[in-house]
Computed example of a mutant assay.
Amino acid sequence: MVAKKKGEPAAGSDADLGQSFAVNLMQHLVVPTFVLDAQCNVLIWNKACERLTGVQAAEVIGTREHWRAFYEAPRPCLADLVVQGRVGEVEALYFTHGDASGPSFGVHAENWCVMPCLGSELYLAIDAGPIYDGDGNLVAVIETLRDMTDHRRAQTALEQMATRDFLTGIANRRSFDEKLVSEWKRECRDLRGMSLLMIDVDHFKRYNDTYGHQAGDRCLQQIATLLEQVVFRPGDLVARYGGEEFAVILTATDAIGAGIVANRILERVAELALPHSGSECGYVTLSIGISTSLPEPDMTQENLISLADSALYKAKHAGRNRYVSDQGAETVE
């Protein structure tokens, strides 16, 4: 007969039954769930987790290979960060996250996961909560998962509708206004100059009258695509300002740099060679007004727009197919 150790529950005790019931319950939860021990080994990988990831429990139980269910390269899951006391890394590793200041109560995060076994990408809402013994020692961490892919994609679509121009797909007037305000504050804080390009398609009414509004829409779409190809720095912005007018915000850019960008745009439009019988040269051209400003007490973003509009007006009346800068520079293509 084997003596029972002190503190050890008797065989078939309520403690044994309770633990068995808890494990069995977790296995059959409809919420995808897995459990890591204090060494990041997988203790439980329930059936819902198998369905969500395409990875069977037998493949990961007793290993630290659970990352393979979510990512193509090794990286910690949220439960790993809790086990290892690395919750400070959540911000760098996850698309969005909750307050990680109190990890003893659990951590929430959301992320796009590539799901290698499924061959598809999912947006998962993730919660990881620690379990401690009576002495306060970490015993395990439970991670639960929710598939939020459809919700996230719908949310992204709504956000794009609010910030993108429906016809051209580039930023809309609202995005332009918000970007100009935020960048103006940044430029003033960092004592850097910025430039604004106001761009108008020459004789666009004639183009619509000659070729029809559908052709006019295609023309605007082609111009928008071209602008985004020329203006590609992450901090800059190309927007449809209204009608046939576009606007470009060039951060940390002086008048010379803005002129180079404007000249490149005019060259690319000439290469595009969209036929336009109502234009002086027989193809679609642009007029561009440029304003550049260093942060000054009496200068505002409204002044920047006004100066660019004035320069655009001068470009139009000087013969079109050119850019004019509020600094006095002018180029004719």
Rank of each mutant, 00 (worst) to 15 (best):
R153D: 10
L145P: 02
R268E: 15
K6Y: 05
A315K: 05
L266V: 14
L52V: 10
G106Y: 08
G136R: 04
A128K: 02
E159D: 01
E89K: 03
R192V: 05
A318Y: 07
R264P: 00
A311L: 06
E178G: 00
M161Y: 04
L43C: 07
E244I: 06
K4R: 13
G18I: 08
D309G: 08
F166D: 07
P275R: 02
D135F: 08
M115Y: 07
G216V: 03
F232E: 13
Q56I: 06
E159S: 10
H203T: 01
R153S: 03
A318Q: 12
A22K: 09
L197A: 08
I260Q: 12
I290T: 04
T285D: 00
T285H: 02
A140Q: 15
Y132L: 01
E330G: 06
R64I: 03
D298S: 09
G12H: 04
M161I: 09
S13P: 06
L227Y: 00
S306A: 13
V107W: 04
A270N: 11
F95M: 03
R192W: 09
M194G: 06
C188Q: 13
C49M: 13
L274S: 01
L25H: 04
Y207G: 03
L52S: 11
I288V: 14
R186D: 08
Y241R: 07
L25M: 15
F232G: 00
R218I: 00
P32Q: 10
A318D: 15
I223W: 04
V87C: 15
F232T: 13
G12V: 09
P74I: 00
T149S: 09
P76Y: 06
E59T: 03
V332T: 11
V230W: 12
F70N: 02
D202Q: 07
Y323Q: 00
Q19E: 10
A171H: 13
V248M: 05
